[in-house]
Amino acid sequence: MFKKFSEKDSVSQSSQLKSSVIRNLRHNFLQQYPHVEPYFDEIWPKRDNVKLVKCQDHIELIASQTGDILFFKQRDGTLLPTLRLVHKYPFILPWMQVDKGAIKFVLSGANVMCPGMTSPGGKMSVVAKDTPVLLVAEGKDHALGIGMMKMSTEEVRKTNKGIGVDLIHFLNDGLWQMKSVK
């Protein structure tokens, strides 16, 4: 999603969000990730006037008052945390661990193939198809990507071939390089 993304020619405008819109976004997010609740006011302070940054290809980013990019919006409107945010709070999304051999492929923007998660170095959460997941790696402390399950964990185990997770956002992609917005 952010492979060809760059701050210079992707951002088209940024605006303050209405408090009613913010309330809605916060509410929806918590409904999806209720376990984040104790930390949510820290992650996204209630009174913070977050900015909505519109970018090319219908991509929208949500940035804190200080310019940290907290979330990005999928085309369907659901919010996903950025890697910089999940590095701080890695418990937001369920984890899928890729083995060592898969790391460099993820870092170059490739989708995650099933064997990379079912091999001895891989490890999974039990989730359904179309669940957003955090990609962590064998032997590493910090996440390297965020993706969307193309099949359920069960199916990944059963078929064990083809693409298991669609890569959405990864270390060093355009969104990562953006760091913050003004």
Partner: peptide, 17 residues
């Protein structure tokens, strides 16, 4: 050997990491 889902915040760590 699966991860728990959801992942729960650790009590022995202060966030943000």
């Amino acid at each position: 050997r699966d991860f728990p889902n959801p992942i729960l915040p650790r009590t022995d760590i202060t966030y943000p990491i």
